[in-house]
């Protein structure tokens, strides 16, 4: 199966092309957050270098959030449109789980962290089972102190991953002592190749049209509106005209 995988959830941009278990090409950039401009040219360049054309692709695997709203929309809109227009399979994987895929130590816990400012984070807790990070505590948007309060690692080791993880080093060491391990600068980056390998094992989404990023957070306008209008939610706010 020929697979394109991509993640632009945060500052990093990572793309890979795989054929079953073989990684044909991969590229990761970490400097400029110019995903709208760089993503398709990088995909195009890698495809050309491995002698593939878009119609050779059979599946797209995308890290679909959480993360920067614009970032997750660029990868998700690209993946969704590509899968739809080529009539191929689409798989969405949590961007936090994508980062957790870097850790392989069986039985250990993994806490991928995206800094969402003002002591807020997007995070989740995973445990490595059969080489794959499985969700123990669901991905969420939360105040970091409240998040730590919810976590009991027992005697396990917890890997804090992500380039934002060092922002929370003191609090993590305070809570977990020497049981917390910070990853190196390679494991802190999302790797599209790992995302592609993992995404091949999952079932594709059933309805591509309804596929949207997992924001894990309402916009402020919607949250305020909901609070002031309990029970007034309608199913569709969009209508076709013409």
């Amino acid at each position: 199966m020929k697979v394109l995988s991509l993640d632009t959830s945060n500052r990093q941009l990572t793309v890979a092309i795989l054929d079953d278990g073989q990684i044909l090409a991969t590229e990761t950039t970490t400097v400029h957050q110019k995903h709208a401009e760089y993503l398709l040219p990088i995909i195009d360049e890698l495809m050309t270098k491995v002698d593939l054309t878009p119609s050779d692709l059979q599946r797209v695997v995308v890290a679909d959030g959480p993360g920067s709203y614009t970032g997750i929309r660029i990868a998700t809109a690209t993946a969704k449109t590509l899968a739809y227009t080529l009539g191929i399979e689409l798989v969405g994987v949590s961007s936090l789980q994508t980062l957790a895929l870097n850790i392989k130590q069986e039985g250990s816990l993994v806490m991928p962290i995206f800094d969402a400012r003002n002591n807020n984070v997007f995070s989740g807790l995973y445990e490595i089972k059969n080489g794959v990070p499985e969700n123990v505590l669901e991905d969420c948007h939360t105040d970091f102190d409240k998040w730590l309060d919810r976590i009991d690692i027992k005697d396990k080791t917890v890997y804090a991953v992500g380039t934002d993880a060092p922002h929370f080093e003191d609090a993590l060491k305070n809570k977990f002592g020497d049981k917390v391990i910070f990853s190196d600068s390679f494991d802190n980056l999302p790797q599209a190749a790992r995302l592609g390998l993992y995404g091949q094992t999952l079932s594709p989404v059933e309805y591509i049209h309804t596929f949207v990023p997992r924001y894990l957070r309402l916009t402020k306008a919607e949250a305020d509106w909901k609070q002031n209008h309990p029970g007034e939610e309608v199913t569709s706010y969009v209508e076709k005209v013409n």
């Binding site: 709203y69 614009t70 929309r73 998700t76 809109a77 969704k80 449109t81 739809y84 227009t85 591509i208 049209h209 309804t210 949207v212 990023p213 924001y215 916009t219 306008a221 919607e222 509106w225 209008h229 309608v234 706010y237 969009v238 209508e239 076709k240 005209v241 013409n242």
Partner: peptide
């Protein structure tokens, strides 16, 4: 084909950019 979000933004008295972006990705394909 035009999918309008007016009914959504009416809730806020004007267009909220992030809400607009979210509707666009729901509708595009």
């Amino acid at each position: 084909v035009v999918a309008t979000q007016i009914n959504s933004h009416k809730r806020f008295g004007g267009v909220v950019p992030e809400v607009a972006s979210r509707h666009h990705i729901e509708q595009i394909t």
